[in-house]
Design a protein around this nucleic acid. Structure first.
Lengths: 199, 199
DNA sequence: GTCTATATCAAGATAGAC
DNA sequence: GTCTATCTTGATATAGAC
């Protein structure tokens, strides 16, 4: 079946890329790991770069999907929003993101490692990136408008939040058992919240 | 002269790796850019990996050198240390780091891009990494001991600080003119300080 | 769509003169 | 230490049968 082989190839590539790096992984070995002939890979993807980009898109969309739900919930009730509800919404967003990272180690590692690396076509990368940053900005605007957040330039704030999400998820990804530890879980969020709240 | 050619090769590699990525850069093109014969590269480095690792070490040591000075200043006066002096020391440390990043864009980009990427030999990478993290921990212990910092697990705190340094320097590196803007400069530090201080 | 077999080629690395 | 010339390999990508 067409789609099945394509999926198998993507998944095999994900595993190998994370384990050994993209440039150390030959298309032949991907095909083999997927249980597919080497020529078949080039039926589904125009070339190795095409496979890399498709994989990146696939992974990134998986990451976004989880967030979009939480984000929409928050934006629906944006008219009558009090400070506490906003904080709780931020927490849910944060929590879901971390949870997704810890439960999808391969995806997260791949994304994190090839984020801003020339091995993924840069234009594709920044397109997907911008979509996510834009959504994040909407959420932050809600808080800034109400004076709940630090008075700082929005682009810097947005960058900071995004990077804190990336770096914290990376921390828990490396040590998943710490994500089960309430002290770590709460400290991480407190640190995040404190970094952006108006003092 | 021996050392000169070696340096030229390192610098040419730095430029090309940052511009096109490591795997898209052939040893031949590095030699050419350095104005050196292709065989000469393999006299100075055992192979391409050797060059990559040497470059990584070189860059990382350049980054650390600046910090060590600031760090020592702080540790010398650690006996009689008040809160304000500690905050000022943190600021100096932060400021020097950012400044170094903005004034050394190639080094910083290279480091940032190949940080935790399989393209640099992992054991080398974590050795250099640990040295820096250990120094950072000493500084944070000073603050934690006096109850000035958020009561959170030290490994998480250390990771957070290191990542904030990386991500913020990356922000200003992409837009160097914003580093000249006091509002951005102060906001960034405030955000950092607020994220780790006891409320 | 999938396979096998193979063409092509570029890049890493070496040999040996200077 | 540096150069030129060359070897070798392994990976991408294609051709063509099924």
């Amino acid at each position: 079946m067409a789609n099945s082989k394509k999926q198998q190839l993507l998944f095999a590539a994900l595993e190998l890329f994370v384990k050994q790096g993209i440039s150390n992984t030959s298309t032949a070995s991907i095909a083999q790991a997927a249980g597919v002939a080497s020529g078949t890979l080039f039926h589904h993807f125009t070339n190795k770069q095409g496979l890399i980009d498709a994989l990146y898109r696939w992974v990134k969309e998986g990451m976004s999907d989880g967030l979009v739900t939480s984000l929409n919930l928050l934006k629906q009730n944006s008219d009558a929003l009090d400070h506490q509800t906003y904080q709780e919404a931020l927490f849910r967003l944060w929590f879901e993101s971390m949870n997704w990272a810890v439960t999808h180690p391969l995806h997260t590692r791949f994304f994190y490692r090839y984020y801003q690396n020339q091995q993924v076509t840069p234009s594709l990368q920044s397109n997907l990136e911008n979509r996510m940053l834009q959504q994040l900005e909407e959420v932050l605007m809600l808080g800034a408008k109400n004076g709940w957040l630090l008075d700082m330039p929005m682009d810097l704030l947005r960058h900071h939040c995004y990077q804190m999400y990336l770096s914290t998820s990376q921390f828990f990804l490396e040590q998943p058992h710490l994500w089960q530890n309430p002290n770590y879980q709460q400290s991480a969020f407190k640190c995040f919240l404190q970094s952006i709240e108006r003092a």
